[in-house]
Each structure stands twice: as C-alpha cells, then as structure tokens.
Design a protein around this nucleic acid. Structure first.
Lengths: 248, 248
DNA sequence: TAAAATGACTGGTAAAGACCACTTAACATC
DNA sequence: GATGTTAAGTGGTCTTTACCAGTCATTTTA
C-alpha cells in the first residue's frame, strides 16, 4: 500500500485518494490499459464509502488518468491521453515542453488606454479603463520565435513591475503567486498573416513571410477577463498544439 | 415551472434536471450572474435528493453554464463562457457555426495501406492494417475553403460507403448514429505552409499562397484512435477557433 | 453440440441524513 | 458609532443503504 487516508487532514478524503491513485499510476504500479481495483475493493482497502471512492475516480477521469467501462471496470488511460486534458500553457511553459530555453526582450511596458477592440475583449469600458501593455520579443534558444503583445486588466490593488517580468518571465506564474488568480478558460484563434516590414525586422524573416497569428482572451477562476494577448509566430519555427476534449 | 422530472423515464433524473435547468437558463428565466435556487430549494421543487441535485449542477458546471461560490450560492455563467467547454467540431458544424453552408467534392475514396506516419498516429501496425481514406474539397457557400484528407481506422464489422458520405457530409454524425462511437478527445496541431501547384489549383489560390495546415488525431470514448485527418485551409478565408479550459 | 439462462462480477443512479466551512446580515456589546 | 458575536443561509464532504444496468464466464437446457 503506497499510502493511506488521513482523516484529520484538511484535504478532503476523495482528494487524498485521487492523489494516492494518481501516484500508483505514475509509479507504474498500474499501467496503461490495466484494470484498477473495483470500487467495492477500494472501499475496503481505504476504508471509505463508495460515493467518496467514486468522487476520487470522477476526478481522475476528468483529468484523463482513468476511464470507466460499465460492467467491466475502471482502466488506466494510455499515456498519450494523460498529462491533464489541455494545458493553458504560457509561452515559457510552451517552450520548455518543446525542449527550448525560453527568453525574452521587453519592447514596451506601461499603462495605456485600450483600443475599442481590446476593451471589448476584456469586457471593459474603453473610457475610464487603463490596461497594462507588455510587448515582448520571445525567443527559444535565443532564436526569435514570436512577437507577443499582451494587455492585462488588473484590479486597482494589483500591480506588476517591469523587474518582475524580467526576472520571472511568466506573467501567469506571477499572478498566481501574488494574487491567487489563475487562468481557467480561454478563447483562442489562429490565422495566417504576412510579415510587415517592422515584424519582419523583429523576427528576422523576409518581409511578406507567412506568420501564425494567435489571439487569446483569458479568464480567471472567478470569470473575470484577465488578459488579451496576440502572439505572432514565425511560420517556419512554430507549430501550435492543442488537446481538445468533450467529456460531459 | 418549466417541466418536471419523470421517474419512469429511462433518462437519469440528474440528467433530466440538468436539461430543465439549462432550458431555464437559455430561456432567460435566469440570466448571467443570477443566483439560481439553492440546492435545498431545488430538492423541494423537484422532489429529488440533494446528491441528485448536486449531480445535475456538477454537470452544468462542467458544461460551463453555472458556477458555485461556497457560502453564497450557485450562479449563472456569463454567456461568453457558455456553449460547452470546447467543441470538437466537424467541418460541417464548423461552417454552420460561422453562418456558411458547408459543401464538399469527394476526390478520393477507398481503402489503403497507411503510411508509417499515419499508422503511428492511429496506433496501428502498418503491415496488416488498412484504413479508409477520404479526400475531399470542402466548401463554404460554394467557395473552396479547405482540402481535407481523412484516414479512418474502422473495425472489421464497420463500414462507410461513398453514398453515405455524399448524403450526410459529416463522418462523425454517421459514426455516432451507426455504431454509437463518437469523438471525445483530440490532439491538434496548426502550422503555416505554402500552397503547392496542386493545392493551389484545388483551392483556387496562387501557387505559394500561405495556407493553414491543421492535423488532428481523434479518439473515441473507449480511447481507440478513430481518425487521423489533415485539413489545409486557405489562409485568407479561414480562422481557427478553440475554447480552452482547465477546470479540475 | 449449440443455444439459452443463470449468477456473480462491474459501474450507474438514487435516497436520506449528518456535519463542516464559508458568507452575510442582524444583533448585541463596548 | 464602531466592533464583535451570533444565527441562518449557502455549498462541500462523507456515510450508509439500495437497487438498476451492463459484461462475461459458467451452467443449464434444447
């Protein structure tokens, strides 16, 4: 037995159980395609009621670790489908997952009055709003990859400094640490554009080269718009990836 | 009261309740930001136990219609975030959601031995496998939009005819009706390419025009790979859209 | 021998009751 | 008047119990 449930722990039992089971999967005790113990067996093993067991399995099913087959059992998902559904990756996370070292050069930093389009995307009144604009050249292994133009809707009591951006790199990691807000939902579009002279210069490609334009609006867990960001990727160096799901 | 629970119905009660509540939201009875009746109130209104009520609300929460706040209540999500997570849209659904009438011209149809890359994507042994290849020119309002090349991994007892494709249009709708399999998960990549002479001819664009290449592997609810498909979109006519989430 | 029924497993749905944790507003106190 | 306190409301967790609905190997039956 890898571990047991601690009734005194503040962490809910179903959550503790989910963690234990996830461990047992990741440790290789259960591997892809294996049946895990039935709900009745887990009930005995961990001394929990079946609803609690089911709650834990529900969680792991939504996270992509397990899937159930009525009448047969609960099985471990193939590794392809693990790693948590879909990741709202920041540029930094994205680069690292591709084995590249993320870097950046800050081109603009400061508060601006948002354009009507951006105000609309962020659900703000253009009139009295001000948003933090951060424009950066993003690199992977020191090669230019994308031009990122970010517009952040911060609350009055929230702030981000240029230094923090320079040190941390990831805005999301910072918002999470400082204010406990993190992205939970995003609308994203991708389309093809051709490099303007200015863009071509920054990205070090010929004028008119095909680029991948990614626009994204991000919402936090309390349903407030956090950010509207556009990223212009070099067409020859970047491939967008997403994992889609529909499991209701 | 819009409707009541039918205990005799084969549809689970929690599912019936979720449908009723979704109706009440979409009808405008509850609007964005409103509190819906508390779980105890719903318990009385619909004569159900609280676990059942919670199961229904869980479902609507995952679908993005509601969100809960501990100690305060359950609220209707802003319309932006409704419409269910992320939709694995077929080309047909995709076009219709953009207000365009989907059309197609079948270019190739038949069983082929998959290339190593495609066999790998579908988790097959290239040697003894055969997959159904369907290559189509897809149109919106009769204008060419994309070149779709689809490779389907069908079971021995499953088949799709050219006529069915011509009449139905959507492969997914057909697989669901005939065999009860439907896509639940997909890996998707997008990148920029330039039109080859052949592609340019089909899509009616100049040779070398920028195109958006979308590659997708689809899995069914039982985690079997269903399809690997590439779609080459005209860069000037198509914008990819996705809604991303991370709500565990 | 082959088909049909059985039974023992699996997960799926549902009820009723209890207590905890968070939020809010009304109330009592200083 | 400002400040704590309390109580009632909310969703969050958990147990116990029951029965339904698929799956599959075994047994019975034709």
């Amino acid at each position: 037995m890898s571990s047991m449930i601690d009734p005194a722990n503040i962490v809910p039992k179903y959550y503790q159980l989910a963690n234990i089971l996830r461990e047992r999967i990741l440790n290789g005790e259960f591997s892809a395609g294996d049946v895990i113990p039935s709900e009745r067996q887990l009930e005995e093993q961990y001394n929990l009621s079946r609803p609690t067991i089911r709650q834990a399995i529900d969680l792991l099913e939504r996270q992509g670790y397990l899937y159930r087959v009525h009448g047969k059992g609960t099985f471990v998902s193939p590794p392809k489908l693990q790693k948590g559904m879909l990741e709202l990756t920041s540029f930094s996370e994205d680069m690292r997952s591709r084995g590249l070292e993320p870097g950046q050069r800050i081109l603009e930093f400061g508060y601006v009055v948002p354009s009507p389009k951006i105000a609309h995307q962020l659900g703000l009144n253009a009139a009295d709003a001000r948003v933090l604009r951060i424009k950066r050249l993003r690199t992977g292994n020191d090669e230019p990859i994308g031009l990122q133009d970010s517009f952040l809707a911060l609350e009055d009591n929230q702030s981000i400094t240029r230094e923090e951006i320079e040190n941390k790199g990831s805005i999301y990691a910072m918002l999470e640490q400082k204010y406990g807000i993190y992205p939970t939902e995003a609308d994203e579009t991708l389309e093809v554009t051709l490099a303007t002279p200015e863009e071509a210069d920054m990205l070090q490609v010929p004028v008119g080269s095909p680029l991948l334009l990614n626009e994204r609006t991000l919402w936090s867990q309390d349903r407030k718009a956090i950010e509207f960001v556009t990223i212009l990727y070099r067409g020859d160096r970047y491939k967008y990836f997403a994992r889609l799901t529909r499991k209701w």
